[in-house]
Structure formats: structure tokens, C-alpha cells
Amino acid sequence: MKITKVKVGFVEAPLITPFKTALRTVHTIKNVAVNIYTDDGQVGVGEAAPTAVITGETIASITHAIEHVIAPVIIGMDIKEISLILDRMEQSLYKNTSAKAAVDMALYDLWAKKQRAPLYQLLGGYRHQLTTDITISVNDSEEMVRDSLHAVQRGFSILKVKVGKDARTDVDRVVAIRNAVGPNVVLRVDANQGWTPKEAVRIIGQLEDKGVNIELVEQPVHYSDLSGMHYVTNHTQTSILADESVFSPKEALTLIHMGAADLINIKLMKTGGIFQAQKLCNIAEASGIECMIGCMLETKISVSAAAHFAAANKNITMVDLDGPSLCVEDPIDGGPIFEGEKIQMTDEPGLGFLIENS
């Protein structure tokens, strides 16, 4: 099964409501899709999310990296040598993690199809069903309460609440949501780097004092401020989840050594795909650090790859794969089944998509 062609396209899906964080506002998902073809007629599929404020990548940079740097390196190689292929891709260019992730998941799709098995089973097969949270975008308190209640009505029992745009009112937002949804809904708070270390300690302390019962706070301070992350982690009772601070296995080692977070959020768009994500997950597990699997604004293609990775790994104890649930409609056929907060893996080979060779 040798690689004969790498084809880049695009995938687009409008969102039900605008996605708002401390970093950006998005109305429609517009991502890069990748098909990798082999000499026996198989097609592997992947996706890259251009998230310039986090990975530094754009549609143009992702397209160029795949077509002009990665593709020439991997064309002609045999899928059975997947580790060698992925290592050569990793060495072919610096960073460009979303571009690498799209190719990585397409390669794993082909590799699992070669074995005629679902990818999650080949990677470990720890579970066959996941429970995801859903994101509540940052808005005024009344709108966030309405969105939270609607999410609960849709069957979601875990809410990821975006804050960080206005430290003065963040506590009020979260308290209002807790009062509206009641004590049994799990609340996760994501500041998206929006606070200073002292603001984070003050805000989290107020939430603790008010008994809001937050499961975790994600990336409270700027990604580069590991000393600030350490300060927050060691001056609050609530678990602190590192997101933008950790892209690679090496960065995970540094963060863990510093004691700068209690948990780590793994995203394929940050790690460069499943190959590096598995290394990061193994390091975290060996260090007693549980992980979340997360996503950027992605469609079912790449979210499905993340779901396969999560289903395979015991140390992925939290799931934030709500991309398909945020879209007006699902533009992709096949793959895992997304029904409300439940993600059900199937027995279809690879990622589970049926892509025609054209």
C-alpha cells in the first residue's frame, strides 16, 4: 500500500451560534481537508484547522506546507512503515502542527484500513463510547445562561464555560450559570489565557468561596507564563488544566517538572497528530497527570480522529470534542456517531469514513 498522491481541499460548516472566546469570534468553520491515495485504491482522510491565534497557521500556510513540503517527502512510501513516514514528516518542517495533524490522521486512517480494523482498536481499544462536554461561548451573563440551559435541554451534562474577556464580571457569569443549571451539571471554566496570575487566583478563590463547584479551570494565564501557571496551580484548590502551554511531549515534560498544572489538554492540532499525541499522553500517564482530549473548531473529520485516539487511551479521562455539536449540520458521512454528549465508536475500518477514490 504505497502512497501515490496527496490532495488538498476544503471543508466548511456554519456554526449554530458564533463561537466566542477571549481570543476570537468565529461564525463558520473553514478548514483544510486532506485526502491521501494509495496504489491499491484506498483513500485516507484528514483535516487541519487554521487557528492563527494559537498555532500561527492559516489556510494558505497549511495548504503550502502539505502540498510543497510534506507531500514530496511521503509520496512513494509504504503505509506499513507508518512510524517511519511520520518521523520523516516531522523532520521535514518546523512546527506547522495543524498541517502535520491532517496528514498524520489520514495516514493512520489508511494504516487501520490496511488492517481492516477501527483505528481506536488498533491503538489500544480501551473503550467504545465517550462523553463530551459542550462549549458555552463568552457573552453577557443572560445569554450565557440561556445557552447553558439550552445545552442541558439537548442532553449535555458537562459545560465548558468560556470566560477571560472581562475579569470583573467572570465570577458573575459562572455563578449565574451554576444557579441556572443546578448542582448536578459539571462546569469547566476556560479562560483562554485571559487573566493575569493574580487575577486568576482571586477569581478562582471567589468561585471556591461561593461554592460554585468548578471541576477545573483551563489555561488561566498566557501560554508562555509557566511561572504564572505554577503560581495559580499552587495557590488554588481547583484543578488547573494546561492547554496552549503544552504542544509537544517536551513541553509536557517541562510543565510537569515545574508543577505548573494538574492536568493537560491534548489537541491533535497542537501536537501535530496522533503520533506525537500518544507520546505526550504516555509521559503524562507515567507522571500521574490525567489528560483531556480537546479540539479546535473542527468538523467531524478531525474530531473523529481525536475520538479514536481518546477511546484507545485510559489516561484520557475528560473529553472536549464538541465540534460537530456546534455546527448547523454535519457535512461528513460516516465516522463515529455523535448523539448529544455521547460519541459512539463503530466497527468500520480506519476512521470509519467511506471516501471514493477519484
Rank of each mutant, 00 (worst) to 15 (best):
M1G: 07
I3A: 09
I3L: 04
T4D: 00
T4L: 05
K5A: 13
K7W: 09
P14T: 10
L15K: 12
I16P: 01
K20R: 14
T21L: 11
V26A: 09
N31Y: 10
V32D: 07
V34T: 10
D39E: 13
V43D: 08
G44R: 09
I66D: 00
H68P: 07
V69H: 05
I74R: 11
I74S: 07
I75L: 07
G76A: 07
M77G: 11
L84M: 13
L86R: 14
D87G: 04
R88G: 14
N96L: 14
T97V: 12
A101M: 15
A102N: 04
D104Y: 04
A117Q: 14
P118E: 06
L119S: 00
L122V: 15
H128L: 06
T132V: 08
I134Q: 12
S137T: 03
M144I: 02
V145K: 04
D147I: 11
F156R: 15
V171L: 03
R173Q: 09
R173M: 04
I177W: 10
A180I: 10
N184A: 12
V185W: 06
V189A: 05
G194C: 05
I203Y: 08
I203T: 09
D209C: 08
D209L: 15
V212C: 01
N213L: 12
I214S: 00
L216V: 05
V221W: 01
G228I: 05
H230R: 13
V232Y: 06
T233W: 01
T233F: 06
H235E: 03
Q237N: 03
T238H: 08
L241M: 13
E244N: 00
P249T: 14
A252I: 05
G259K: 13
A260C: 11
A260H: 11
M269N: 04
K270M: 05
T271F: 01
T271H: 06
I274K: 08
I274E: 08
F275R: 14
F275D: 09
G288F: 00
C295S: 05
K300I: 00
S302F: 03
S302L: 09
V303K: 11
S304P: 01
A306F: 02
A306R: 00
F309A: 12
F309Y: 14
A310R: 10
A310G: 10
A312V: 13
D320Y: 02
I332H: 05
I332A: 05
D333S: 10
G334N: 01
I337S: 07
G340V: 08
K342P: 01
I343P: 04
Q344R: 09
T346M: 02
P349Y: 14
G352C: 03
F353V: 15
F353P: 06
L354V: 15
S358C: 15
